[in-house]
Simulated assay, not measured.
Amino acid sequence: MRTVGHLLSRPVAIGTALVLVMLIAGFVGWRLTGGGEYVAPTPSAAPTVRADTVAGRDSLEELVAGVRDGAKPEGKGAAAVATRNADAIGIEGLSARYVAESGNVDEDGSWTADVDMSWRAPGDPTLSEELKVGFDGDGEITGFSADEGTRMPLWLSGPVEVRRTGSTLVVVQASAEQADRYAELAASAVKQVRTVIGWDRPRLVLEVPASGLDSALGAQPSTYSSVAAVTATVDGSSTAGSPLHVWVNQDVIGDLDSPGAQVVITHEAVHAATAAPTNPHRPMWLVEGYADYVALRDTTLPLSKTAGQILAQVREDGPPKHLPGKAEFNTRSEHFGAEYEAAWLACVVLAEAGGQEALVDLYEQTGRGVPLERALRASFGFGVDELTARWRTHLSDSAR
């Protein structure tokens, strides 16, 4: 009793006493009921959702078989769309190897996996990419995508319209009417190029994504946001002889009228005909200027339309002191567009000085590795300094 009375007589110790009493009571109760060693209860775990990888692999095998057999399945599912696209384009040799899950499985059982895929389009080498493939809870394919830096094949990214002739193949993510328009642009481009260049076995492939070019080319976001079209190897290499395709940016070319769009496609067709992206010898101004020379050869548009940007710069700052170099053709350049116009006018100066055949000869010689100075003197009788002087004078006179 003293102890209790002592505790109660000191308010500060009341809480401690109560806790002590409760602990003793608990101990006594445990002893009286004969309990053994105390074990905390195990919390119940939420059920684990697992990916049905067997069904996913089966779906990939069905896709491969469908493409191999030329199937044309009904429906709007990603696998059905891809199979129909493959048949329309002529995709062959498809393989799809399931690698591993990518990320967590959702509560509904859907998931994404990394899949090594290989395929071959007519006239192209076998291409391989590790792509992301989405699956639903039943293992059915829901879509295809690619990590940044990986090229996303157009035939796997949604429905396409396909148009082909003996010399062109056009694959478009757009309406049938728009596909017809791009097919006409491609056919006209081949004809225009062949009036200037000896393109004996023309093959022009246009790929037109629904929006932008960055995903299709495996580029950083916004790299090609201002570019109307790009000619590049199908495998992203710079190896000579690699097949070339032209990727068209609908977000840019869609704002152009028919003559403007034709200039863009013909310009890129020149690059394809001369394997420009894989030739390291020619100066950039000649590569781009020559392509515009062919594309604008029969135009009746005024200089205010075809060279308005560079002439505005000349009026403000005077003519450039040198022909545009590789750095000036950066897609993020402040004056992107003016450089192309300046390069085109350099080729116009050359054609006026020595004729079109001399310009074509210069382009071919430099492509074979002949130094620019020597090739200029062989075709025109003057070198780079004289060309630069004539070009600057032409710019100044045109800007008046």
Rank of each mutant, 00 (worst) to 15 (best):
G26H: 09
G26Y: 09
G26I: 06
F27W: 12
F27C: 09
F27H: 13
G29E: 09
G29R: 10
G29S: 15
W30V: 08
W30E: 07
W30K: 09
R31Y: 09
R31V: 10
L32S: 06
L32R: 13
L32Y: 15
T33L: 14
T33G: 14
T33I: 13
T33Q: 08
T33Y: 05
G34K: 04
G34T: 11
G34H: 01
G35A: 14
G35H: 07
G36T: 05
G36E: 12
E37T: 13
E37S: 15
Y38C: 03
Y38W: 11
V39N: 03
V39F: 08
V39Y: 12
A40Q: 10
A40S: 13
A40E: 14
P41I: 02
T42Y: 02
P43E: 03
P43Q: 00
P43V: 07
P43I: 03
P43N: 00
P43C: 01
S44Q: 08
S44A: 07
S44H: 01
S44F: 01
A45F: 05
A45R: 10
A45P: 15
A45N: 01
A46I: 07
A46Y: 02
A46C: 00
A46S: 10
P47K: 05
P47C: 02
V49Y: 01
V49K: 01
V49I: 07
R50E: 08
R50F: 04
R50H: 10
R50N: 14
A51H: 11
A51W: 12
A51G: 11
A51T: 06
D52T: 00
D52L: 02
D52Q: 12
D52A: 04
T53H: 05
T53Y: 04
T53D: 09
V54G: 12
V54F: 14
V54A: 13
A55N: 11
A55L: 03
G56W: 00
G56E: 09
G56F: 01
G56L: 04
G56P: 11
G56S: 06
G56Q: 04
R57Y: 12
S59C: 05
S59L: 04
S59Q: 14
L60S: 10
L60E: 09
L60W: 00
E62F: 00
E62M: 07
E62D: 13
L63M: 09
L63H: 05
L63G: 07
L63F: 10
L63E: 06
L63W: 10
L63N: 08
V64W: 01
V64R: 06
V64P: 08
V64C: 14
A65H: 05
A65N: 13
A65W: 01
A65S: 14
A65E: 14
V67Q: 05
V67T: 03
V67N: 07
V67R: 03
V67A: 04
V67H: 13
